[in-house]
Simulated assay, not measured.
Amino acid sequence: MNQLTFDNYQKHADFSELCDHRIAHWQSLNFHQDPNKDVILFIHGFPSAAWDWHFQWKHLAGQYRLLSLDLLGFGLSDKPTEHQYSLLEQADIVQALLSKLGVKQYHILAHDYGDSVAQELLSRQEAIDNAAKIQSICFLNGGLFASHHRPLFTQKLLKSRFGGLASHFMNKASLSRGFNKIFAANSQPNTHEIDTLWQLLEHNNGKRVLPKLLSYLDERKQHGKRWVESMISTLVPLYFINGVHDPISGQHMLDYYIDIIPHPRTTALDVGHYPQLEAPEKVLSLYQTFLTEIKG
């Protein structure tokens, strides 16, 4: 499988000032040429970047108009040190980008931290009349329900009063060990993936902001009830693709989703926390089928 290098990822990035921050984003080549094609917005997880979606992007670019971004504090986007990071601000940034590009309706494909941003966007749509309408959401592994999210010890350490010290001593080897734990045994990350994810994390001295980004764990508890109520009541088609061997949000998260979401549409995969990297072809196929079926 051809994989996107850090240099090419950086080379094709556009940058916009959104909510007072310089945000990296990407559009497919047909984005402004085919206004009748549906838009798919990719929202990445912690601690990576929109790079995670490179396989799905390559294969969906002909059928759809594609849009992705590195959220504030991630990848190539600004990483202000003295900043109170918030999932709500990330949703503001997404909405500002959609508005800038004139997007009126869109599908969301989200993972991990991005799931929470998608939940906030859905909740806003259910409460007020936004300009851009969500047509569907496909969630990959993430803390959809705060009560069932199981953060790693490393995440707890980074979030603690020792977070600054822990992030200072973090290196590519420790990142690799962490990813090995959350990928399934039969779909471990390769050297290229670890190298690229480390470059994206370290870019613009990004290690410094990791402890501050982890405030999202508290925000999930704070806003979780509102988000889940929106998921239960919405008419927007929802789909959950879950890597069941994920210690953070695997089978236990999927079971709870099935318990509380009306008429749940789900698929269990024999992988870990990063289905889009561990089983890229399968995620692509499942997502294409979902989009085809909801269009009728």
Rank of each mutant, 00 (worst) to 15 (best):
189 P>F: 09
176 S>C: 10
107 H>N: 09
182 I>C: 05
182 I>V: 15
204 N>V: 07
125 Q>P: 00
163 G>A: 06
163 G>R: 07
162 F>A: 13
123 S>F: 05
91 A>Y: 05
118 A>Q: 06
103 V>F: 05
181 K>S: 12
187 S>A: 15
174 S>I: 13
147 S>V: 09
187 S>W: 03
180 N>A: 13
191 T>N: 13
108 I>M: 02
141 N>P: 00
154 T>E: 12
129 D>S: 13
195 D>P: 00
155 Q>I: 14
181 K>G: 07
125 Q>Y: 04
185 A>I: 10
111 H>E: 13
124 R>D: 11
99 S>F: 03
181 K>D: 11
104 K>D: 12
134 I>P: 00
182 I>M: 08
135 Q>M: 10
160 S>P: 00
147 S>W: 05
112 D>E: 08
114 G>Y: 05
187 S>F: 07
202 E>M: 04
191 T>F: 05
201 L>G: 05
174 S>D: 05
197 L>P: 00
102 G>F: 03
204 N>A: 14
167 S>N: 08
143 G>D: 12
138 C>R: 05
170 M>Q: 11
162 F>E: 06
172 K>S: 14
135 Q>K: 13
109 L>S: 11
183 F>V: 08
176 S>E: 15
182 I>N: 04
165 L>W: 15
165 L>G: 01
147 S>H: 10
100 K>C: 01
168 H>N: 09
154 T>D: 07
183 F>S: 14
101 L>I: 09
147 S>C: 01
173 A>K: 15
117 V>W: 01
164 G>H: 09
150 R>S: 08
95 Q>F: 03
148 H>F: 12
127 A>V: 06
125 Q>W: 08
189 P>E: 15
151 P>H: 10
115 D>N: 14
107 H>L: 06
113 Y>I: 09
166 A>Q: 05
98 L>R: 01
157 L>C: 06
127 A>Y: 02
127 A>S: 12
144 L>H: 09
175 L>K: 10
